[in-house]
Design a protein around this nucleic acid. Structure first.
Lengths: 155, 155
DNA sequence: CTTTCTGCAAATCGTTTGCAATTCA
DNA sequence: TGAATTGCAAACGATTTGCAGAAAG
């Protein structure tokens, strides 16, 4: 399954006349290994130590390509918190994020989308994309008792 | 009404032991005169010419204070498009933005909020705030014929 | 007078880019 | 070979901040 995805990613590069280099393979493999939302920095940190590790610039360049090709998607949380996630073979969903521990949970609702569409129609708007984000405290961080997954305190 | 709002803004500053200076009065008046969403840059451009015009740093500092005091609210559109709007005496609403002309339209729906709440409950999430933004083409920019309000091409 | 403001220029910070050297096909 | 990729360091761009002088209460 993961190797299938890897093949898909490499196929994308080839189809664009792009080359598959050792750094790129490292990046692609790591993206598939993360299994959750990640920042460019997260990704870079995970591979920087290894041999032939790509520079941060290369990581950013590869991510940009994959986003263009719709293999990845980006989501902006807050003002300076851009996360990536794998988009291929996935259907649309939105996100809620815990402001305490940074956990990101996905959700989707046809009902929600339907109402949203009705609103768009009412305004004569043709939607191209949207962003629906809920911020708050996740189940474990709501517990008053010590022991929440508190980790993130960005800003 | 506008002068009432101005009084309200000044009262906020006083209540915090802050001073009312000529630059601040200029900023506050201009904010009330805009009557729509604006960026820090927009605001600065509108007052920079005048006498005793505040510097950009002062504009940013004043905006930050007003946001802290919940007299203003900020909304992030895309990755680098932070807009402010007056929050006092207003109720919650969300936004759709035309990617062609930059026009921002407000909307709100109790139905939408209700479904959203159900989703939160299902996940044990306690929401603190949210952001729901629809991006697309507004009625006039959808017209294939020339004459749309095309102006914005940021990025 | 003491506290809060202000302008300026420098600092941030995540991300992007120019360019010369390197690698892949 | 020749186009595409890479690393480096410099550029970006909106926003923030340190600091010394200016103004408000």
């Amino acid at each position: 399954m993961a190797s299938q995805s890897l093949a898909q990613l490499e196929e994308f590069l080839r189809s664009q006349g792009q080359k598959i280099t050792s750094r790129r393979r490292l990046i692609l493999k790591e993206i598939l290994a993360i299994h959750r939302h990640f920042t460019a920095e997260d990704l870079y940190e995970r591979i920087r130590k290894g041999k032939n590790a790509p520079s941060k610039a290369t990581v950013y360049r590869m991510l940009a390509r994959l986003v263009e090709g719709k293999l990845l998607e980006t989501h902006q949380f807050g003002d300076r918190f851009l996360v990536y996630e794998i988009a291929m073979n996935r259907k649309h969903h939105d996100h809620m994020m815990c402001v305490e521990c940074g956990r990101i949970v996905e959700f989707s609702s046809d009902e929600l989308e339907a109402i949203q569409q009705r609103i768009l129609d009412r305004h004569g708007f043709q939607m191209l994309y949207h962003s629906h984000k809920l911020y708050g405290l996740c189940k474990s961080c709501r517990q008053p008792k010590r022991g929440g997954t508190r980790k993130r305190t960005r800003r």
